[in-house]
């Protein structure tokens, strides 16, 4: 199922949108020119995962020699800090621990969305234009 989230032009770097897809709450994130979709429910205790911070990995060669790197990006649940790979949804504790569902996010031209695809333009009052690109969640 495809869900139109927003026009790309209104979705700025670092922003997130949380959308309801048939009762599933899903967060859509923009980091630079990349978009990510991830379920807004932490597998740990059901916390609102997508309200957490998006963080680059922290690494250290030795005590005190710490740095933050941009790959992988993780989202940290605001409840207990449990983290998940923003792209794959894998737990920071490894693949053996429960991960979170992630979803593909594409940019598609408005012309490709002329069939009935649910999205914010249905309910919003602003003008719908088909010549822009849209952020489309594959949920």
């Amino acid at each position: 199922m495809r869900v139109v989230v927003a026009p790309v032009s209104s979705f700025s770097d670092g922003e997130r949108r949380i959308v309801d897809v048939g009762g599933r709450s899903i967060g859509v994130f923009r980091v630079g020119e990349s978009f990510y979709g991830i379920r807004n429910r932490c597998p740990h205790q059901g916390g609102p995962l997508c309200l957490g911070h998006v963080l680059g990995d922290a690494v250290a060669d030795a005590p005190g020699q710490a740095a933050v790197v941009s790959d992988p990006l993780r989202i940290a649940c605001p409840w207990h800090g449990w983290e998940y790979d923003l792209d794959s949804g894998q737990s920071f504790m490894g693949a053996a621990m429960p991960g979170v569902r992630s979803y593909g996010v594409d940019l598609e031209p408005g012309g490709a969305l002329l069939e009935r695809v649910p999205g914010p333009y249905v309910a919003e009052t602003f003008e719908v234009r088909v010549e822009d690109e849209y952020v489309v969640l594959h949920a």
Partner: peptide, 10 residues
């Protein structure tokens, strides 16, 4: 540690 490991990535 799981919640605050970022303070001590070593």
């Amino acid at each position: 540690w799981k919640g605050v490991w970022r303070e001590v990535p070593w």
